[in-house]
């Protein structure tokens, strides 16, 4: 299955099977739902934001391996980070899934597993779902001060 290794890497399969930060937060400071009507993918994202950083983040939902792994990786990366820090990671992630990886530049090792997504145009939306949902939350945090 060598052709598929670029997409279904060990790390993706592991996050799919054992998603990190899986579950709900009782009384979260922020909550958002994301849908991908094309696949029927769905994510519920729970965030505790303390005015400065994301203290805690959890998610639930159902979706394909790509969307689940992407959500799982995302939660591990943004926990304890400020909005500006997260925006930076988001921008890097977005570039990777739409334009691929330019290995002349530094790539966060957590995001490297998504380098192959660009080759699967039908799956870019799956990878982006969790991040778009988080973005909705960050925008709302912005508007509230």
């Amino acid at each position: 299955m060598s052709e598929l290794n670029d997409l279904y890497q060990e790390i993706i399969l592991d996050h799919n099977k054992n998603p990190r930060n899986w579950g709900k937060i009782d009384l979260p400071s922020n909550f958002a739902e994301g849908f991908n009507p094309l696949c029927g993918d769905k994510i519920e994202l729970y965030v505790n934001y303390n005015g400065d950083k994301i203290q805690d983040i959890k998610f639930e939902g159902n979706g394909c391996a790509i969307s689940k792994a992407s959500a799982s990786v995302m939660t591990t990366m943004v926990k304890g980070k400020t909005k500006d820090e997260i925006t930076k990671i988001y921008n890097e992630f977005h570039q990777i899934i739409t334009e691929g990886c330019n290995h002349d530049h530094y790539i966060d090792e957590n995001l490297e597993v998504f380098c192959g997504v660009k080759e699967y145009p039908g799956r870019v939306k799956c990878a982006a779902l969790a991040w778009h949902t988080l973005n909705d939350i960050l925008k709302r945090i912005d508007n509230n001060g």
């Binding site: 299955m1 052709e3 598929l4 997409l7 279904y8 094309l38 696949c39 029927g40 993918d41 159902n62 979706g63 394909c64 391996a65 790509i66 699967y120 039908g122 799956r123 799956c126």
Partner: peptide, 22 residues
Amino acid sequence: DIHPHDVGTIMDKLGIAVRTGQ
């Protein structure tokens, strides 16, 4: 518990066109 879209993507790489979704 393998999601149909993952099935479809892997099949696609093998040259097999199947439909996935609702």
